[in-house]
Structures are given as structure tokens and as C-alpha cells.
Design a protein around this nucleic acid. Structure first.
Lengths: 398, 398
DNA sequence: AGAAGGATTTAGATCGATCTAATTTTCCGT
DNA sequence: ACGGAAAATTAGATCGATCTAAATCCTTCT
């Protein structure tokens, strides 16, 4: 990253992120330009430009001559040149904390859906949860003159880091993860509502003693989830059953948490897990103890990872279609670009409950042939919720 | 897609892919330019430019003054302006036939690995297997002035379509799928070697009567796979056992093919399937017939989809790490950009054999806790193979 | 016919960098 | 101190579009 050639070590504050020898490339075929078209059609360059931009000012007759000339010469529009003059580039940056999980690829697909329809193009970059890399790519995006950025911030991203990367001032939509203190647009799944949904479901099945597995890290998604969990229990005046921390949110951590919990007296009859992965670990621990998930103890997760439908018993869980989140994020960014001065907005995409066997409800019995058959229940209104900025501040800290 | 405003319907041969009202945006903060830096540092614009490009021509003293000025003023490099003059943009286009399957997201991650290291940025677009959309995005990429393109062609893409989209002339690497008659660089998995690998494995386990399930469509990947299958059998002088077509390459089609095959007399003792999905259907048919995959009949697939490790019995299969394919593709494209006149090259990435239970070998018995435990065996040399262009022509049609 | 006024068209500046071809400085040796 | 080469700097053209302001070209009306 720091290969410095030459004699003097430079301190390039905002120099190009890196400079390479630069592959010269001889201009073998002289790219066709507006001037060529103009000459060929017998008009001025300005007129051709007007035709390009579908201006109503040009006469139908000349427009056709120009169009003809363009096809004849095989003209390809040079957006970079146009952008230099006009400012906007019809380009956005997509900065992801990772790209290989299905969640993010569907999210990306959602973004692309909207961009393609609006004839935008998006740069994609992966920060791999690395703050340094994130800063680098954010700057790089701006060097390339994007009109805005959709950012899924790397873990531990602080507001000042984003300020420093010049993100303030550039239209920027945060997705999936909030950054406390950075008052920007946000689009993400409604974890609170989802947790409320699954908890309500368990209560509906008769459970009165419900535990929560996972989470000690003080991260926003956890607080949100716990809020939903608590809300449901409180509504039914039930005890906010044991909340068991997990140092890391993975399978083995869930396993250990459940093992310990069930070594104590009077364990819960139902467990809400931070996510599906934790739930798998929990179910493993139960099975080892001779308890059958879905019959002896109800278990629910969050995310609906691919394995959830294939696992035996099938895992009851909830999820928010990441593709929808992507679409909403892209749309919001485009609105923001159109009008940079509107107040920050946040869009919370409602979750869907997916009932399988692990909660003890009558999910479909065998579902190997069809891909993880399940009953899906959408939460609340089908339309995403939008709230005003003060809500953002409020719920970010909750 | 074809919303034409205004009075005259224009026939924009190569006009901008779409023109929007254009979000004006008032230049509220006057972006800092080279001139500002120059003034602040008391040098000329040209000198600042030299500093930016780390030229050895500038004196250490002035370089520092300029660097200071840049940090003081919060300068952000404007690559678009630079590109307009210099030609190269340090930008590439990634055009994918789809983006939501793990294969393509890992492929994308591989591309990004290399681009990030070389301080390039990539546009990402999804053609959704649609030729029209593919053409549109290819043109759009060129409007944005990419230095080159990595293309996973949509199905049924013909060479002339790519020529027409101006891809000839622009550095372009095809990945994962070949396009017959389009002599470009290619990077993809070695399906033939993979098929040879699994077939050899079955022969090693004692099978002498081996069938192939899947494929009637005359597509390149199928011919490749069959070639590997045949090669292994021929080497051992075995009969090229029944080759059963599948109209479509999915689960139910594999199911039907196996059901029919086992209704006949003297069925094979082992089945090589076009891919994992087909193999799942095949195993379902076997099970229904009272035959246990891995004990009564050996079954192998291709791709190592996530389900392969979770299925019972675990599916023996092979795969090529898509991330590696992505990296190789990106590297090849950058080499091509550096030197556009070198002859076309193709890189064939070797497969890895993943032995589970469905082939009857002693795969690990229970692997629920660990994520689809398996024994992996790399094929041939660890380094990807490169062949000269004539091989491309030769093997594309085989 | 001539003026008014809208419809078209255009010359020339401009965006922010790079590149070429100088020009100016600096450094030596004598 | 001076010529000359090397080192460092710079003026001005340039990339290919857009934008502004002004110049034409038509109609239409008096």
C-alpha cells in the first residue's frame, strides 16, 4: 500500500489515491467526436450537442440529419467530457462492507435494478470491514466524480471518519447499518418489528417464559432487536426472560450460551436468537441435551439464511428482502441527488415472518423436494415506512 | 425503457443511452482545483500537476509546499478531468449475466480484490441474461470511458452482437462462458478436467458402468464436461455408458432422467451429473426407487453449491473457486489494457474435487456441526493453465 | 417593404486536468 | 565571472463535451 518510488517521500494529503506508470495507449482509431458529426451533417457542434440532449429547439429536419451522421460515423457519446462541463456524472458509488454473502449480492441486485432503469451506473467496492480500505475507496469514488454513494459502513465506522472522507457534502445513503452521529439518509431492515413479530408468534403459541440469546456487543442492530423483543413481552405483561450474551455472534457462541442456560434451573420454554447462525448453535446444544427443538423448546432466528430451510427441524425466522432494501436505497439516493437540500430521511423496510418447525407451530412436515417450503407472513403494511430525521436520532441510540 | 418525450421520435444511433432532465445542482462550495493549489503554493498549475503524478522533476522543497497546500485546501483529485486529457480512466466495467448466486458474488469479490490493489474501480451491471440489456450496458460502459470490460456473456450471446456493441477494439475479457467466434481473452473453470477428476474417482472406486445425466442443449459447457467424462473412460478402456439428456438442467429434469434410466434393464452403478442441482433430482429418484445414493449407486455433481454439503448424503462434487476465476480475469484484463496488441490468451482455472458420501467413498459421516465437512483434492498443478489462441478455437467447438 | 418576435443556429468560453515545448534557474568547471 | 548543460518551472494548447449570449433565419403583421 505504501510503495513509494523516487527519492522524496511525499505526504499527499488528497493526491490521487495512487499513481501508476500509466499505460500510455496510442490512439489508433481517433474516436469520433461531436466535431466530426457536426462537419458530416453540416451544422455546428452546438447543434449536435442539442440533438444529443433531445432539446426541442432543433428543427426536426436537422435533427434527422444529425442522427444520420451519428449512425454513419458510429459515434459513441463521451460522458466524461460531458460531465466535466455539466457537473453530474450519472454515476454512483456502492461501498459494501463485504460482498460474498447472499444478503449483499441481493442488495446489490436491488441497487442495480433501479440504476439500470434510471440509466445510472454504479461503481462497486468491497471494504472487507476494514476502515482504512473504506476511507480509501470513499475518496477514490469522489475522485471519479460520483454523484452520490450508497454505503454499508464497515464495522466500527465512526461519524468523524465519514466526515473526514468528505462524505459530508456528497449525497450519501447509509444502508443496513447506521452510524451514530452521522445525520444521513438511511435504509434498512426493521429488526425491531421483526423481533416483535417472532416474539408475538411465540406468545401466540402459548409461551410465557421466553429467553433471548445473543449479543453483548453494543451495536445498533442488537439494541434494535432487543427493543422489539421487549416490546412484545411488555405488551403481554410477561417477564423479560433471561437475556444471554454471546461474545461473538456465531454458531459456537450460540451453542455455549444455550448449554449454560439449560444447565441452570427453570430454563425458558422458548428462545429468540440474535440470528439464524446463533440459532443453529442453540439447537445443537438443545439436541445434545436430549431436547428436541420445536417439540420441547421453541427456537426462532433472524435472517432466513439458506441453511434455515434445509436444517431439520426447519428454522422459524424472519427476514427483510435485501433486494427491496437495495432498491429503496438506490431510489432514496437518486431523490437526494435530485434535491440535496431536503432533510435526511430514513426508510425502514418491513420484515416477513417465515414459520417452519423449530417454533413448534404446524410448519410443513417434509420439504426436501421443494426448496425449504414455508408459510410466509408479511408484517404490517406492505409499503416501507419513512420517518423524519428526529426519529433517526431517537432510535439510533435506543 | 422507451419513454420518449418531446415531439419528434429520434433515432439515436449512438446517442447517450438515455437523457434525463438532469439534476442541475448549484455549485455551492466551489470545488478546489489545481489552480487554487497553485495560487496557494505560489507555483504554476503545471508544477502542481507534476507533484500529483509524483514526477521526479520537481524539487523536494516545492513538492512539500504543494503537498501542504493540498492538505490545507482539502483538495480532491478530479479524475474525470484528468481522464479527458490523458485517455485512460483507471476504470473497468463488470458486466454479469446475473449477480445473486454465490458464484457470481465470489467472482465479483475476486475482481474487486485485484482492482483495489491496482487502484482501479469497477462499474457493476447485471444483464439478467437479457441480450438487449447487455447491449445497452455495454454501450453505457463505453460512454463512461472504461478502459476495459470483464464480461460474463448472457446466454445466446453471439459474436456479432459483441462486435456491434463496439466491444471489438475495447479491451475485453470473457469469463466463465465462451462466445464462439469472438476471439477475445477468456478465463474460466476447467470443466473438462473436473469431469475427468470425478470420473476417475468413480473408476478408482471400482465402477465400470458409469452414466452421464444431463444435457442436450448444444452449449459449450456441456461439450466440455462430456469431453472430460469421455476422456477418463477412454483412458481406462471402459464403455462410454449411457448419456441421458435433460431438456432443462434442473432438479426435476434430473429426477425424470434418472427415473427413466432405472426403469430400463442393467442400469449403471455410478452416475455423473451435469451439475449439483441435477444430481439432487437424480438422488431423489433413486431414493424413491429404494436405492440409497452412495451405497447402492454412486452419484457425483459439479459446482459444490451450498446445499451439496448439507444434503444427506453429502454430494461428492467438484468446483473451481469463483473468486480465483475473478482474480485471474481482472489480472488478465489489466495486462490487456497495458498492452492491447498482445495475442488473445485463455486461462483455465483447475478444479478441486470434494469427496462426500454420495460417491460411496469414506467421506466424513456426520457433518452437521461443521459446515459441510469434506476432503478436498486439488487437480493438477496449483497454477492456472494458459493456452495460446489456437487452443481457444479448438476447444470451443469440441 | 420593414419591423417585431419567435424559432433555430452558432461562436467562443468553459469545466479541470495533462502535455508539449519552451523558459528560467541552478550548478559546474574553467 | 561566464558559457553551457542539467534541473526545475511554466505558458498555453488540448481533451470533448456543455453553456451562454448573440447571431441568423423565418413568419407574421402593419
Amino acid at each position: 500500500m505504501d510503495v513509494r518510488k523516487g527519492k522524496g517521500a511525499s505526504a499527499p494529503g488528497r493526491a490521487p489515491t495512487e499513481t501508476a506508470p500509466g499505460g500510455a495507449a496510442l490512439p489508433l482509431a481517433h474516436r469520433v467526436t461531436l466535431n466530426d458529426i457536426a462537419a458530416h451533417a453540416g451544422v455546428s457542434r452546438a447543434t449536435v450537442s442539442l440533438v444529443l440532449r433531445k432539446s426541442p429547439l432543433v428543427k426536426e429536419d436537422t435533427r434527422q440529419r444529425v442522427d444520420r451522421a451519428m449512425t454513419d460515423l458510429g459515434y459513441v457519446y463521451n460522458r466524461r467530457a460531458a460531465n466535466l462541463r455539466s457537473g453530474a456524472s450519472r454515476t454512483i458509488g456502492l461501498v459494501l462492507c463485504e460482498i460474498i454473502t447472499p444478503n449483499y449480492s441481493q442488495f446489490t441486485a436491488g441497487i442495480d435494478d433501479v440504476l439500470d432503469a434510471e440509466s445510472y451506473v454504479g461503481f462497486i467496492t468491497n471494504t472487507a470491514e476494514d476502515a482504512t480500505r473504506q476511507k480509501r475507496v470513499l475518496v477514490r469514488m469522489q475522485e471519479h466524480g460520483v454523484d452520490g454513494i450508497v454505503l454499508v459502513p464497515a464495522e466500527e465506522t465512526r461519524a468523524d471518519a465519514l466526515e473526514e472522507a468528505h462524505c459530508a457534502g456528497l449525497p450519501c445513503v447509509l444502508a443496513q447499518r447506521r452510524v451514530e452521529g452521522f445525520a444521513a439518509d438511511y435504509v434498512g431492515p426493521d429488526y425491531a418489528a421483526g423481533m416483535e413479530l417472532v416474539t408475538e408468534h411465540l406468545i401466540g403459541l402459548g409461551h410465557r417464559h421466553i429467553g433471548f440469546i445473543g449479543g453483548v456487543r453494543r451495536i445498533a442492530p442488537l439494541s434494535e432487536r432487543l427493543a422489539g423483543f421487549r416490546r412484545a413481552l411488555r405488551r403481554h405483561k410477561l417477564k423479560i426472560g433471561p437475556i444471554v450474551p454471546c461474545p461473538v455472534l456465531d454458531r459456537s457462541s450460540g451453542y455455549a450460551a444455550a448449554r449454560d442456560l439449560f444447565a441452570e434451573e427453570n430454563p425458558p420454554t422458548a428462545l429468540v436468537c440474535y440470528n439464524d447462525i446463533v440459532a443453529f448453535g442453540v439447537m445443537l446444544a438443545l439436541t445434545e441435551r436430549g431436547l428436541e427443538p420445536g417439540r420441547d423448546v421453541a427456537v426462532v432466528g433472524c435472517d432466513d439464511v439458506a441453511e434455515a430451510g434445509l436444517h431439520r427441524p426447519g428454522l422459524t425466522t424472519f427476514t427483510t428482502d435485501p433486494r427491496v432494501v437495495g432498491r429503496e436505497a438506490a431510489r432514496l439516493l437518486l431523490r437526494r441527488i435530485e434535491n440535496p437540500s431536503r432533510p435526511p430521511e430514513q426508510i425502514i423496510v418491513p420484515p416477513r415472518l417465515i414459520i417452519r418447525q423449530s417454533c413448534g407451530a404446524a410448519g410443513p412436515g417434509r420439504a426436501l423436494a421443494q426448496k425449504g417450503g414455508h408459510a410466509a407472513i408479511a408484517a404490517k403494511a406492505p409499503k416501507a415506512r419513512r420517518s423524519s430525521p428526529h426519529t433517526l436520532k431517537g432510535s439510533a441510540g435506543t
